Simulated assay, not measured.
Amino acid sequence: MPKKSKSKKEKRPALLEACQELFDTTDLYEVIGVRREATPQEVKKGYHKRSLTVHPDRVGPEEKEVATKKFQTLGKIYTILSDKEKRAVYDETGDFGEDDDVLDQDKDWCEYWRLLFPKVTVKDIEEFEKKYKGSADELADLKTAYIDAEGDMDIIMDSVLCSTPEDEERFTQILQDLTKDKELPEFKAFTKESKKKKSARQRRAAAEAEEASEEAKRLKLDDTDASLTALIQKRNKSRAARDDSFFANLRAKYAQPQKGKKKKK
């Protein structure tokens, strides 16, 4: 990326200083985890996925200050990369002009974030699950999980969206067929998995299912965003990494670009 020549006395823009301090890079694309050629929708998904991990409501009190700074910085980056003209200037010169909109420390970035991304309710998740299970998307995710986990079914079951213990037999058969047909490599972790390891996984799954059921009863879970948020917050305490992956990907699928009234689904 071409950079504007700067004098030694010229200060680096405050946003880039924040990027360096908080994310160890001054490349705006790198901060949100997308390539420079990313489409506007990919930029939005990248911002959404990264901001989910530092949302102030999703971290503990001891991490809240740093998370808030990161969340604000990501919002400022998105205001640049989502603006066609500002992005073009940044791509060409490495500069973007820190106007009041970008620098406004009092801007409600949480409200800005909520306006960009629709809420996901329990009903949304159920509808998504019906379409996802048995789809080409699920198969692609299963293959990727198998390769990344090198055949470890513990990781595979945690990685594939919407997976439940009832899906394990189906996943196993699919993977066995794919390895037999040489579409996937064979991994000992998969082909030689011990009965003890499989039983332990099934016991954990049963315990988690019971815990989730009890928690849903305690929260009187219904089809509202408030109930879903309460359940997410509860689950985050014990299964943060898995939940972050699940909800980041699920919300990203729902985070469609805002369209004018002329275009309705």
Score class of each variant (00 low, 15 high):
E208D: 13
D91W: 07
K133P: 02
E210C: 00
D100L: 13
E129V: 01
E168P: 02
S194F: 05
Q176N: 12
E193V: 12
L74R: 01
Y254A: 09
P165K: 03
K264H: 09
A212N: 15
V54N: 05
R12Q: 14
T191L: 11
K64D: 03
A149N: 05
R203I: 13
L81F: 06
K263H: 12
E183F: 10
R35C: 06
K262D: 08
V89D: 07
F171D: 06
N236F: 14
L219G: 03
L250V: 15
T25C: 07
R114V: 00
I125S: 01
E21N: 08
G60D: 05
R239K: 10
K45I: 13
K76H: 02
V160T: 08
I232D: 01
D141R: 11
R201M: 07
K182R: 11
E129A: 14
E98G: 10
A252C: 09
K196I: 11
G134Q: 08
F247N: 10
K253D: 12
K180S: 13
Q105N: 12
K253G: 01
P165F: 05
T73Y: 06
K234D: 06
G134P: 11
L231Q: 08
K262W: 11
E129Q: 12
K198S: 11
V43R: 14
K130G: 00
E127L: 12
R242A: 09
D24K: 14
E214F: 04
